[in-house]
């Protein structure tokens, strides 16, 4: 199945994340929104298993935040009480679930964008009239994050080869080790970034206010249909929120 144009996904992500911020207390609405975003992500080809593996720690953290929110924002029926203090309430659990769903929505929206090649995303941004310098800045930034991680990994391997068993180190020593490693890794990444900038500069980057494009995105009829559905959904959600249906 052909993936929709990235501009359609930008619209979808914008709608989903905007409502994720706007919806404050309606758990059912948020759950519905989450369900819809999961279905869209599956249709686009997001690999949730891979996503969970990568974000396992973050999801665990989110779960802890949700539980804390549930404990510290008590309201409604008390489910657990200690010395007269409500520890767990129905309202608290609902608030925690809202936090979890909100972050889940952001992550799913972000995951949808990762299903497209960077070039397509840049072109999409350029064709929705975003200045191309900013589009390239984002893409180069995104590209440098894995490079930074790779360099850190290389430095850690180099240390291990010299006999340092990082797993056996105590937390304090581990932290100081990372502090020592961070500086050379950042300096080396900055050097790479400078070389990249020089190379882009010599190939006439930012020579003119605009630039031509060899690769162009074209909206096909199915994209228009999806865009209409997204717009209708946005209107429907706005009405629901305004009228409080």
């Amino acid at each position: 199945m052909k993936k929709p144009d990235p501009r359609i996904i930008f619209a979808l992500v914008l709608v989903l994340s905007s409502f994720a911020v706007i919806i404050r207390e309606d758990l059912k609405l948020m759950a519905g929104l989450m369900l819809m975003s999961i279905l869209c992500a599956l249709a686009i080809g997001v690999d949730f298993r891979k996503m969970f593996r990568r974000l396992k720690r973050l999801l665990q953290l989110l779960l802890v935040v949700s539980i804390l929110r549930s404990i510290f924002a008590p309201s409604g029926t008390i489910l657990l009480e200690s010395w007269g203090i409500a520890l767990l309430t129905v309202g608290g659990i609902e608030m925690g679930a809202l936090v979890l769903l909100r972050f889940g929505l952001f992550l799913t929206s972000g995951a949808m964008l990762t299903c497209y090649p960077v070039r397509m995303l840049i072109q999409g941004m350029v064709q929705i009239k975003m200045p191309y310098e900013i589009a390239y800045m984002i893409s180069v930034g995104v590209r440098f994050i894995p490079q930074l991680a790779e360099e850190l990994k290389d430095s850690l391997i180099a240390l291990q080869l010299r006999g340092v068993v990082i797993e056996d180190l105590k937390l304090r020593k581990k932290l100081s080790l990372y502090t020592y490693l961070l500086l050379p890794v950042v300096v080396s990444s900055m050097q790479n970034a400078k070389e990249l900038a020089m190379s882009m500069d010599m190939r006439a980057f930012r020579a003119y206010q605009s630039r031509t494009s060899f690769f162009k995105l074209m909206l096909c009829p199915s994209d228009i249909v999806i865009l209409c559905v997204i717009s209708a959904f946005a209107v429907f959600m706005s009405v629901v929120l305004i009228m409080g249906v």
């Binding site: 090649p117 070039r119 882009m200 190939r203 006439a204 003119y208 031509t212 494009s213 060899f214």
Partner: peptide
């Protein structure tokens, strides 16, 4: 810094 060789060659041409 591009996704494909074609894009890489096109980059400078697009800029001018």
């Amino acid at each position: 810094f591009c996704d494909s060789i074609e894009d890489e060659i096109a980059f400078g041409l697009e800029n001018i």
